[in-house]
Design a protein around this nucleic acid. Structure first.
Length: 736
DNA sequence: CAGACTTTACTTTTT
DNA sequence: GTAAAGTCTG
């Protein structure tokens, strides 16, 4: 296909002035008269045929398995079948973005792009899987070989193949956010900053600063001036500390999440042959949720598409909600400048929601400081019900209302899995979770604390990591402290020695001496001798083992499980059960290294496992943070705790643009709903200490737009504990 | 010096 | 209600 790129005709609309929602700028991205040949054979194919040959009408050749025009509306069709070059698809909420992308995948493959030469880049592995699965259903099997994954997993794969070129061992460790903070804490302590006279920022803050620098490409001074004003006084100390952090990670073969991106960029910058080879493997790059890319990710997209120049970016600047992670809408707005000649197509018809839901969504964005031109209009004709604002006395009432309404909707024919409860922060659903359990309503919780982040799981994983990379002092630090008789002092002495042993030459291979703590010059407490011997024997077994990962976990548990009662006296039994589940998950991976990568890059793997039991029963209700619900849709949506201070979060107004991002978050939540939306406000919040305080509804919803959001008051007899189980469910008073 | 115990300060979203 | 930092005891 060597058709000339379409002229840049469409443009991003960022101000309310201008064309109405009906304008079809998307289709006009095709130069006039070109549309009819979109699917036709390319001139080069025709030229290679020697015999005289009569072309069939362009519409029917080449024969495509799918009826794209029948399955898509004109804007979607233009997007799915756009020609080569750069294409930006601006897809408003609910406009069939996934449908369009899936058809685009199919179309690319049908028109000759090998599936394995297509990269589908998303922010969560779940999104990639879902899309490839849906595409697979369209074009049986052929799309399974599309390379789908997150930016981070893509970079991790690439770096494993080229690690030495950026100064990393091939078995480098991937540090998750907590590990990164732990390493920074180690450096902080080494420098005695914990005893400094002026309070020095804590490890989490340090990690946030480091990440802001890496993800946004700004220098430390700018980051401090913009986002961490209070830390300006520590500027020099921070600069030194961050330098040491980078050096230490490199010396010990560790990479944090941001390093995966920036090392890949550095690899491309210093090894142009690698960039060319990698980019040449990809005939087409598709990026979902482009409004949420950060500086490094935008550069990666450009690099990965730098040979063939075929890149499709999909996004909606009204749904940008990852500013805290370095994302900026600037990148999506800059696409026309960065990719001269890029097509900008728009999807504007909302197929998801009934109009009353969209009216509320439009109202939320109407109050934005920056105007959004988007006015969502429902494509369907179903009238729909007005969203409800539940004025609940407190979160106990809120929980009972939601549980009851969930059951009511279920009776009305909406399966649990088609309903979702969304919240700003993970804790907002604690009361509801108890209520759901009490009523036997199965649910899965997405987002928030994960099993992979639980202390006992991290303990086990740390052992595997040491077996994989004996220089991984973050993991060493963790597992040494688990040994009875080893505390901070001994651990630090050992760590220093391990670092030295693993960075200097080692005749038995890197880290062997460290692994066995052999020849350690460190004085060890006699009490710890047994424990350490047991530990090193276990590690040596693991190190030498190429048994499947689940067997390695079993071997490890023989050592670790007996420690549980001492480490976690209160709930060691529950934790032991988690670890059995972990072994089962390990069985799904082909090697220890693959298992460790998956754990670092795709922690959702574990929560999915936890839900297996409930899946056998009935597909469960979905509880999710708004962030994790991005891209999903549900018949019925409940939004919990729509309170000022929660949404917008009290902390959000501290950074520039923080509050506007919270508004977009509310917009994302509202636009997940297809037919029914319940926004609830527990008016009395229980304070942590004694007492309670009155809260206000979210400022984005006040004054309460009663024309768009119908107030409901709950009316219910107080539960009578003794007869509760006999009483039929009592309906809350509807209508206000 | 390890580890239990006490006090104090926070408490978002995720790869 | 938790996590980090500080205090005490064997």
């Amino acid at each position: 296909m060597h058709r000339r790129r379409g002229r840049f005709v469409g443009r991003l609309r960022t101000s309310p002035a201008g064309r109405g929602p009906d304008s079809v700028t998307g289709v006009s991205g095709w130069p006039d008269g070109r549309r009819g040949t979109a699917n036709g054979p390319s001139p080069s194919v025709v030229a290679s045929v020697v015999r005289t040959y009569t072309l069939r009408p362009a519409e029917s050749a080449p024969r495509l398995a799918l009826d794209y025009a029948g399955a898509l509306d004109p804007q979607q069709l233009a997007a799915a079948t756009a020609g080569p070059g750069a294409t930006l698809i601006v897809a408003g909420a609910g406009t069939g973005k996934t449908r369009t992308l899936v058809h685009r995948l199919a179309w690319l493959v049908e028109t000759g792009t090998p599936p394995e030469a297509i990269a589908l880049v998303t922010f969560t592995r779940r999104a990639a899987h879902e899309m490839i699965q849906r595409a697979g259903a369209l074009l049986d099997g052929r799309l399974a070989h599309v390379r789908g994954g997150t930016f981070h997993s893509l970079c991790a794969d690439l770096l494993r193949r080229h690690a030495p070129r950026v100064g990393l061992p091939p078995r480098f460790t991937i540090l998750d956010a907590e590990d990164a903070a732990d390493l920074l804490d180690l450096l902080r302590t080494e420098r005695r900053l914990d005893r400094a006279e002026v309070r020095f920022p804590r490890k989490k803050t340090l990690a946030a600063v480091a990440s802001a620098v890496a993800a946004t490409g700004r220098d430390l001074d700018d980051v401090l001036a913009d986002d961490f004003r209070s830390l300006l006084r520590h500027r020099d100390t921070l600069a030194e500390l961050l330098g040491a952090y980078a050096a230490r990670k490199r010396a010990l073969g560790m990479a944090d999440y941001d390093d995966l991106l920036t090392h890949t960029l550095a690899l491309f910058a210093t090894h142009d042959d690698v960039r060319r080879a990698e980019a040449a493997r990809l005939r087409h790059v598709l990026v979902d949720e482009y409004q949420d890319v950060n500086h490094a990710q935008a550069d990666l997209v450009a690099a990965l598409s730098s040979v063939h120049g075929n890149v499709t970016m999909v996004g909606d600047e009204a749904q940008s909600i990852y500013g805290f992670r370095g994302a900026s809408v600037r990148h999506i707005l800059d696409v026309p400048a960065r990719y001269p000649g890029a097509r900008v197509l728009r999807l504007e018809r909302n197929y998801r929601s009934v109009q009353p839901v969209l009216d509320l969504a439009n109202r939320v964005t109407a109050g934005a400081a920056e105007g959004y031109a988007k006015v969502l209009v429902a494509a369907g004709t179903e009238a729909g019900e007005k969203p409800a604002m539940i004025l609940a006395p407190d979160d106990d009432w809120e929980a009972r209302f939601v549980a009851q309404m969930v059951l009511e909707r279920r009776e009305a024919g909406v399966p649990l899995a088609r309903q979702a409860v969304l919240m700003r922060a993970s804790w907002c659903s604690f009361t509801l979770e108890a209520e759901l359990s009490r009523r036997g309503i199965p649910f899965v919780k997405v987002g928030g604390l994960r099993l992979a982040e639980a202390a006992h799981v991290k303990d086990v994983v740390a052992h595997l990591r040491v077996a994989e990379n004996a220089a991984d002092t973050v993991a060493w630090n963790r597992i040494l402290r688990l040994v009875d008789g080893v505390g901070t002092a001994t651990a630090h002495r050992l760590l220093a020695w391990i670092e030295q042993a693993s960075t200097t030459g080692d005749p038995d291979g890197p880290g062997q001496a460290a692994l066995a703590l052999r020849d350690a010059t460190v004085r060890l407490p006699a009490r710890a001798a047994d424990g350490l011997a047991h530990l090193t024997a276990t590690l040596a077994d693991l190190r030498a083992s190429d048994a499947p990962p689940d067997q390695q976990v079993e071997r490890l548990l023989a050592y670790y499980a007996p420690l549980l009662p001492r480490l976690y006296p209160d709930d060691h039994a529950d934790r032991a059960a988690d670890l059995d589940a972990l072994a089962a998950i390990a069985a799904r991976h082909r090697s220890r290294a693959a298992f460790l990568d998956a754990l670092a890059l795709d922690p959702l793997d574990l929560t999915a496992e936890a839900s297996d039991a409930t899946l056998r029963d009935e597909a469960p209700l979905v509880l999710s943070t708004i962030h994790s619900a991005k891209g999903l849709e549900f018949d019925t949506v409940f939004l919990l705790h729509a309170l000022d201070g929660v949404l917008p979060h009290a902390q959000a107004s501290r950074t520039a643009g923080g509050e506007e991002e919270e508004r977009r978050l509310l917009y994302v939540a509202v636009t997940r709903a297809e037919t029914h939306l319940f926004v609830s406000v527990p008016l009395v919040q229980h304070a942590r200490g004694a007492g309670a305080f009155l809260s206000e509804p979210s400022r984005f919803l006040s004054p309460l737009p009663e024309a768009l959001l119908e107030p409901w008051r709950l009316d219910e007899a107080p539960p009578a504990p003794l007869t509760e189980s006999l009483a039929p469910p009592h309906l809350p008073g509807g209508g206000g």
